[in-house]
Amino acid sequence: MRDSCGIDPVAADFRSAKASIPDGNQPPRSISARFTKTAFKKIEEGQLMLIASLAIMAAGILIFITGYSLRKRGKTSFIAGNNEVFVPKNEKKLAGRIGAVVMLFGSETILFPIVFQMIDGMEGYHFAIIAAVHLVAVFVIMVLDQMPI
């Protein structure tokens, strides 16, 4: 169907729509989508994984330093409810044991990104299991401190 000038309106709309599409196959993107795509072109997947691994390792170093500090100072004031609900019987020994567990967790956090790359099939929930085991270990250490030996 053509109008009075002999131009098919459907074909004209199609040509104008196709002209507004940048590469002819995809609709035009929003400015934020274009910015995101260009920003991530500069950072490839491997580089992004390296940055994430370094951040996790830095967090592990901070955890290790915290554990070392707890062990060295021998104070348990970091425990929630300390001296209110829970009064340590041997504060220096308890701080040393909990500090050792925290240092071990920090070491595992530092090593996890390396091991994650080496072992195929290892996922993030494995790290969550390790964290849960350390949490249980801290509670067991606290209970052992309260038991008369």
Score class of each variant (00 low, 15 high):
E108P: 05
E108S: 13
T109Y: 04
T109A: 08
I110N: 01
I110R: 02
I110F: 10
L111W: 04
F112M: 04
F112S: 02
F112C: 02
F112W: 10
F112I: 04
F112R: 00
F112T: 02
F112Y: 14
F112L: 04
P113S: 01
P113C: 03
P113N: 02
P113E: 00
I114P: 00
I114T: 01
I114G: 00
I114H: 01
I114R: 00
V115P: 06
V115K: 03
V115H: 05
F116T: 01
F116W: 11
F116Y: 13
Q117C: 06
M118W: 10
M118A: 15
M118K: 13
I119W: 05
I119R: 04
I119Y: 05
I119A: 07
I119N: 02
I119K: 05
D120N: 12
D120L: 14
G121E: 04
G121V: 03
M122F: 10
M122T: 07
M122D: 00
M122N: 01
M122L: 15
M122Y: 05
M122W: 10
E123T: 15
E123P: 04
E123M: 11
E123V: 13
G124N: 05
G124F: 14
G124Q: 07
G124T: 07
Y125T: 10
Y125H: 10
Y125Q: 05
Y125L: 14
Y125W: 13
H126P: 06
H126N: 08
H126S: 11
H126E: 07
H126A: 11
F127Q: 12
F127S: 14
F127M: 15
F127K: 14
F127D: 03
F127T: 06
F127R: 13
F127V: 13
A128S: 15
A128E: 04
A128N: 07
A128R: 09
A128P: 07
I129W: 11
I129E: 08
I129D: 04
I130H: 05
I130V: 11
I130E: 06
I130R: 07
A131G: 07
A131N: 09
A131R: 09
A132L: 11
A132M: 11
A132H: 03
A132T: 08
V133I: 14
V133Q: 12
V133F: 13
V133H: 10
H134C: 08
H134W: 08
L135Q: 06
L135S: 07
L135N: 04
L135M: 06
L135P: 02
L135V: 06
V136N: 05
V136T: 09
V136P: 06
V136M: 12
A137V: 02
A137Y: 03
A137M: 06
A137R: 01
A137C: 03
A137H: 00
A137W: 09
